[in-house]
Design a protein around this nucleic acid. Structure first.
Lengths: 209, 209
DNA sequence: TGTACATCAGTGAACGCGCGTTCACTGATGTAC
DNA sequence: TGTACATCAGTGAACGCGCGTTCACTGATGTAC
């Protein structure tokens, strides 16, 4: 039953991809190793040829989910008007993030919004992976987020917290109207707010942290 | 081994109180019925004399946690300067919510922040209880939140999402500095933001939804 | 007020089930000659 | 290039454990007379 190195590597990738999807969709605790392997038509035993523990997979799944959304957002941004990261683009990004589609599809959505609740109850390794993910996502907000978030790190953190909060709360409510109100309120709040006096923000590349 | 009606009622209250604390601290899935009963020195079997299922307890625990923090915040507000709900008070409320203490003590903290991640993966009854909780907490924000949140429902939702987001993310990170940055950024964002032109908000009672 | 009996709060063991992890086994893959 | 053998990806059953829930049982409480 041995598989070639290529096949094994592909299996490993499939496990991480499936885990990253299922964890965001149903939570870290509610998805078992058997669920993930089963989704791939494999049995549990083989899992431990690839990972030391479930927690090790959680860490890689968080990394994979983060790469996935970072790439997606960047491709989107380049794809439709390479010249300048315009306000229009900003709004597309915000609209996508604060959409019913995002609320209804955590499995392909932001890992910060999908996992923040669970990660609070997990071990150090998981929290560290989540922290790295947050830092990557904050870079995205700095480069592609609403104008207000380009001003300062504080503005980025504020925008990020409100966006994640809106999506997480929208997912936790049974009231569709309240969910949509939350999304709309945060969207318009972010588009309206303008930081203090003037101090025009540089549009160019922003130093990585 | 039968207990008096009073004793039984007290046991029931103890179960709800303990559950409300443990659920916020360790999550809905990670706390078992046996954990809760064990904390009270009782055995699991007796649980079902008081509740139809674990989910029924989850619903009551959410309600109890909400009442608890609503009462606490209102008493605080009345307690130290009854005359007017002043800006100073607002800042106390914000400071408490966006504090390291709140991040480190979910068991006595905001149920929206403590449970929103879990509730997304739960059944309808739980989501409905959580929705009611959110509505109660939004009233608090409207009455005691930062000035900005008194202007409109959108402002309340925006403030609420950013506050919950900050606390949930702060709890999920292993980086104390990032956690504190999030709290500070949202706090100063909420205190800075002033809604559009002027349109002074009424300070008096606000209609319940 | 006193007695007989029904009620039922809490016990402790058991139910079937799923969890993360381990392990002997399989047979195709990879390697050494 | 061909053969012998070691490796190891994946299988399937088992490990000990904890889960939510059920149930026969207990004895103090509550009630009917």
């Amino acid at each position: 039953m041995r598989r070639s190195r290529e096949e094994a590597a592909e299996t490993r990738r499939h496990i991480v991809e499936t885990a990253s999807r299922l964890f965001r969709q149903r939570g870290l605790t509610s998805v078992s190793v058997a669920d993930i392997m089963g989704e791939l038509g494999l049995t549990v035993g083989g899992f431990y040829r690839h990972f030391e523990s479930k927690e090790a997979l959680v860490v890689e799944a968080i990394e994979a989910a983060t790469e996935e959304v970072v790439n997606y957002v960047q491709v989107q941004a380049k794809g439709d008007g390479a010249a300048q990261p315009s306000t229009l683009l900003d709004n597309d990004y915000l609209d996508n993030y604060l959409s019913s589609f995002h609320v209804d599809h955590p499995e392909i959505g932001c890992p910060a919004a999908g996992l923040c609740g669970d990660v609070g109850h997990e071990g150090l390794a998981t929290k560290e992976a989540f922290t790295k993910s947050m830092q990557r996502l904050l870079e995205l907000v700095a480069r592609l987020g609403p104008d207000v978030a380009r001003e300062s790190r504080d503005q980025q953190l504020y925008a990020f917290a409100s966006m994640v909060g809106a999506v997480v709360l929208a997912r936790a409510t049974s009231d569709k109207t309240l969910a949509n109100d939350l999304l709309r309120a945060v969207r318009s709040g972010l588009l309206r707010d303008t930081p203090r006096p003037a101090k025009k923000a540089p549009r160019g590349a922003r130093a990585r942290r």
